[in-house]
Amino acid sequence: MKLVQWVFLLVSLGAGAAGVYLYYAYPFLALPSPWGLLPLYYLLPGAYLVGLLVGGLFALALWLRGLWERRGLLRELRRLRGEVEALRRERVEEIPRIPDRDEA
């Protein structure tokens, strides 16, 4: 997990550094849009942040789905334990005692 955190930090710093580099080296680069010209030094870190946001939403959805599945599995486990307990009460088997052995 620490490796993933370090990679995330380095990629984030790289995206920010690329935006700063574009700001100082090529401030005139811009892409046309319906809202006017958008400078490239805003678009690169902005695209990275949008990707980060979408990835976070997918991670949140995956986590919530896991919670939902866990809840269903625990409900099924409780149901099966209840069935096993009912079968045990219904069919009591007597364990024969050997008189010369200690109880375990």
Rank of each mutant, 00 (worst) to 15 (best):
Y42L: 13
G19N: 10
V7L: 14
E103W: 03
S33P: 00
V54E: 03
R101T: 01
V11A: 11
Q5S: 11
R101L: 05
E85I: 01
L9R: 15
L73P: 08
L87P: 15
Y21N: 05
L3S: 09
F28K: 12
R70C: 01
V50N: 07
V54T: 02
L62I: 06
R89T: 04
L74C: 07
W63T: 05
R97E: 07
G51C: 13
Y42Q: 08
R101E: 07
L62R: 15
E90N: 05
L52Q: 13
Y41P: 00
V4A: 11
R79I: 00
P27L: 04
L40V: 15
Y24C: 06
A61E: 10
V11N: 10
R81V: 09
L52K: 14
F28W: 13
E69P: 04
W68L: 07
L53S: 14
L57E: 06
P39Y: 00
E69H: 14
A15M: 14
L49R: 14
I95Q: 09
W6D: 06
A47Y: 13
Q5E: 12
R79F: 01
V84G: 11
A18G: 06
L73E: 04
R101Y: 03
P27F: 07
L44P: 14
G46F: 04
F8W: 13
V11C: 11
E94K: 07
E76T: 03
E85M: 03
E93A: 10
I98E: 11
W63S: 03
R81E: 08
V4P: 13
D100C: 00
G14E: 09
L44G: 13
R79E: 03
P45M: 03
L3E: 05
G36V: 00
